[in-house]
Design a binder for these strands. Structure first.
Lengths: 137, 137
DNA sequence: ATAAACCTTAGAGTTAACACTAAGGTCAAG
DNA sequence: CTTGACCTTAGTGTTAACTCTAAGGTTTAT
């Protein structure tokens, strides 16, 4: 299977596959006489792993780590994998919390604003951003 | 007031201030005889506006738009400002939803994993990432 | 008078995850 | 035998919001 075919199978771009190979996420395949990459089942499995790990929120760097562990399972423990998962979940939770603060502040700003089509001379949102005590703590 | 002093007052870096000026977020100040920037109250007010808008989640590009509206209030309506705010809130909400899906998936993975310090031969997390039906829909 | 601390500009580097481009070689069909 | 679809590499561009570097001029304190 050449790169275009594999890319179609897994619904990724050929650029992405070469990039993953360069980043050490996808095994370097054998080449045919004219230098074309020749892929097999193994590579498709790797790409599906990458896809699923991405869908769960892991970055490529984290996925590389997971793939390495998966490749040499005997050298690693379940605990290690679980820790990676929990650490990631923690980061995600922190980001969610930050965004929820943004959301709350934006809601408050929008709520206070009349939203009229008249000139914004006394717009409460602009005032809030100007004033020191614009937003309730 | 020179740039270092102003930067200290608002707790930003001098690099950031020059960057904001270059991006049109901070008015270009007068220069003294030797070319040093000379700031006044106006600039501090602009920076506080930027700070607060950032704290609420607006990007610099969005802040530039808000500052422009704020500068020429008569030409713009409350509705315009409110729309920007609501649009931003919508984007934030979408991002939160995505992260919450990540969080749920990661929780599910972690929950299934024994987390033992034994070799990860049959780690349920790795299995889930390998298998097609690893994660519950 | 000189050292430390400050200022200037232009431009490169950072992070993530690719997309895009150029310049060229290969392969299958008609 | 040539056209079009495919492949190769190397290198640049993208976005955000700065940070860092180099190479130099200024100010302040001693």
């Amino acid at each position: 299977m050449r790169i275009g075919e594999l890319a179609k199978q897994v619904d990724m771009s050929t650029d992405a596959l070469r990039y993953y190979e360069q980043q050490g996420l996808l095994s370097a395949p054998l080449r045919n006489a004219s230098g074309y990459r020749q892929y097999g089942r193994k590579h498709m499995a790797q790409l599906r792993f990458i896809r699923r790990a991405k869908d769960v929120g892991f970055s490529l760097e984290e996925i590389a780590e997971l793939l390495k562990i998966n490749f040499e399972k005997e050298q690693h423990s379940c605990q290690e994998v679980k820790d990676l998962t929990l650490k990631k979940r923690e980061l995600v939770a922190e980001r969610i919390a930050e965004l929820q603060r943004f959301h709350a502040s934006l809601s408050q700003l929008a709520e206070q604003c009349c939203g009229s089509s008249a000139p914004a001379q006394h717009c409460s949102i602009l005032t809030a951003l100007e004033d020191i005590d614009g937003l309730t703590q």
